[in-house]
């Protein structure tokens, strides 16, 4: 398994649950590395069912949205799907304002997201 700097993976059957190690996902060098790690899950590992658990994330900017949108495209192109969960109310508002709550499948808890596949 690859050595990740920004994410931790848990596997539940054929579903990969991603936890973030950074509490802030913002525009800096780290976000490029985070993007590369997330994309590799699909492009290198061939994972097709992803759950992104945001329980540790208390701040993110539109730069993070860009990474998530690109990841979503890659997952869909590979014939898979991804779910988001455990999003704080403040960050949830970012998804609502931008209408990205319509693009992404957002669930309240990790168990809900896993059950939704």
């Amino acid at each position: 398994m690859a050595d990740y700097q920004h994410i931790v993976l848990n596997e539940v059957a054929d579903i990969t649950v991603v936890h973030f190690l950074d509490s802030r996902i913002i525009e800096d060098l780290a976000i490029q590395q985070l993007g590369a790690e997330l994309f590799s899950l699909v492009e290198v590992d061939g994972r097709k069912k992803l759950v992104l658990n945001f329980s540790t994330v208390n701040f993110m900017s539109s730069s993070a949205l860009s990474k998530l949108i690109n990841l979503h495209k890659k997952v869909v192109a590979a014939g898979g799907s991804m779910k988001l969960c455990n999003i704080s109310p403040d960050i949830r508002e970012i998804f609502t304002i931008t209408n990205l709550n319509r693009l992404f499948d957002i669930r309240k808890e990790e168990a809900d997201a896993i059950a939704a596949f």
Partner: peptide, 15 residues
């Protein structure tokens, strides 16, 4: 535009 990756920063500021 929903799946385009950029262009949301100014919108968030205004909100």
């Amino acid at each position: 535009y929903l799946d385009k990756p950029n262009g949301r920063g100014v919108m968030l500021m205004r909100n």
